[in-house]
């Protein structure tokens, strides 16, 4: 894989039950590329958590995934409300999700911590009122 492969997805913010479509597609692509199962698992979970966050908090967004000879890069960009306190948001158990989200099994305050756990590098750029861009890298 000397050439970089890139994939773009629009994440629908309206339909909560379809959240995860982009992650599932990426998982399928990575399997077809023959990546090892643990790398696929890390990328899939990190991206799914990010996708769910965009649906819960930001009304959707865009996901760009690229694969090169070093690893997988995931960029998640939304124009949502932004994260007021990133350090707080990174704490396990801290969540601003509403009760209806919690009843679906989300909103446990584990999304961003899981994204960090499963990515080798993670960078969050967020501005209140403008949006959030999260870049995650998973190396081979």
């Amino acid at each position: 894989m000397s050439d970089e492969l890139t994939f773009h997805f629009d994440v629908d913010g309206e339909n909560f039950t379809s959240a995860g479509h982009a992650s599932v597609k990426v998982k399928k692509i990575l399997r077809e590329l023959g990546l090892d199962p643990e790398t696929i698992r890390k990328v899939s979970i990190a991206m799914y958590e990010g996708e769910i966050n965009m649906v819960i908090h930001a009304g959707g967004g865009e996901a760009d995934v690229s694969v090169d000879d070093k690893g997988v890069t995931i960029v998640l960009k939304d124009s949502g409300p932004g994260i007021e306190d990133i350090d707080k948001a990174m704490e396990e158990g801290y969540s601003t999700a509403r009760d209806n989200i919690r009843s679906l099994g989300f909103g446990a305050g584990m999304g961003l911590p899981n994204m960090k756990r499963y990515s080798d590098e993670m960078n969050i750029e967020s501005e209140v009122g403008k949006g959030t861009t999260i870049t995650m890298k998973v190396y081979f």
């Binding site: 799914y48 099994g105 446990a108 899981n114």
Partner: peptide, 9 residues
């Protein structure tokens, strides 16, 4: 477990 992110973590 029932909390989905907890399960993924």
């Amino acid at each position: 477990g029932d909390l989905l992110s907890w399960v993924m973590g």
